[in-house]
């Protein structure tokens, strides 16, 4: 890979000034996407600002109505956290299905959210659960955060500090993995929240999106049968050697039904 500077600040202000020092500097979380891109010379930052030395960015807090996960918390820590397993098991299961064990040992939630890979899992959870993305500048609602392929509402130099997940009544995630990369060819997160049923789809298009048609069908009646016969448009859906657009459109329906069945089977209502 090309050369760059590496800094590991101990505080958030130090990290912000390091990022501000160069427009080509980039924040580093677990590096599970960034380091491979550097190796393939697909990215060429002037400096990497490693956020993992900042204590307050790591860790999981549980409040009465929310789970707050620090940006540099690893997927493995989320997957194994007793309170998340108890209060929001769908999120623990999602985190436990990302990549492989070594990716989960290193990869961080903040890194995934800031990167907004179109086939990443977490964005579906954030969007379906109506999470908020807490940053060095304030807070973003998930609905406004994921703006396009690898694009977010983050301003240059803005650092994700934590993700706040309101605890839903019920939730489930179903993913159809790429047989090769294990990223989501399609992933569907269904959540029954205080504000109604929210359904987010990842992997299928250039950016995670909410599936209003499914939401309204499930709003009528929360049952897999409510989704029978729904047809999803192939417009804007990804097509690659593993899944063409009609297959992805089909999988959205299958996975949504399965997520609903799973959600109902767990019988957990908060």
């Amino acid at each position: 890979m090309r050369t760059f500077d590496y800094v590991r600040p101990a505080t958030l202000p130090e990290a912000l000034s390091a990022l501000a020092a160069s427009p080509e500097a980039r924040a580093l979380g677990g590096g599970m996407s960034l380091v491979p891109a550097l190796k393939l010379r697909l990215a060429a930052p002037s400096a990497l600002v490693d956020l993992r030395g900042i204590p307050e960015l790591r860790g999981i807090r549980i409040t009465d109505d929310a789970i707050v996960i620090g940006a540099t918390t690893t997927h493995a820590d989320v997957a194994a956290h007793p309170a998340i397993l108890d209060r929001l098991p769908a999120l623990a299961a999602l985190a436990g299905g990302i990549g492989d064990p070594q990716v989960r040992n290193c990869g961080t939630i903040g890194g995934v959210v800031a990167n907004n890979d179109p086939s990443a899992d977490y964005p579906a959870a954030l969007l379906a659960l109506g999470a908020s993305i807490e940053t060095s500048r304030g807070s973003h609602a998930a609905d406004d955060f994921f703006t396009g392929m690898f694009e977010t509402a983050l301003a240059p130099g803005e650092i994700v500090t934590a993700i706040r997940f309101p605890i839903p009544k019920q939730a489930a995630y179903e993913k159809f993995k790429s047989p090769a990369s294990r990223y989501a060819l399609v992933g569907v997160f269904v959540a029954v929240t205080a504000g109604g049923v929210r359904v987010a789809v990842t992997g299928a298009a250039s950016c995670v999106f909410r599936a209003e048609m499914i939401e309204s069908a499930l709003g009528e009646r929360l049952a897999p049968e409510s989704l029978e016969g729904l047809r999803f448009s192939t417009d804007g859906l990804n097509a690659d050697m593993h899944a063409d657009a009609p297959f992805r459109a089909h999988l959205i329906g299958v996975l949504a039904r399965r997520a609903v069945s799973k959600l109902l089977a767990t019988g957990k209502v908060n």
Partner: peptide, 18 residues
Amino acid sequence: VVHVDGRSVKSCTTLAAA
């Protein structure tokens, strides 16, 4: 794969500087 602080990681994706 090696262990860093007791956990398995991919050393090809780990910056030595960290």
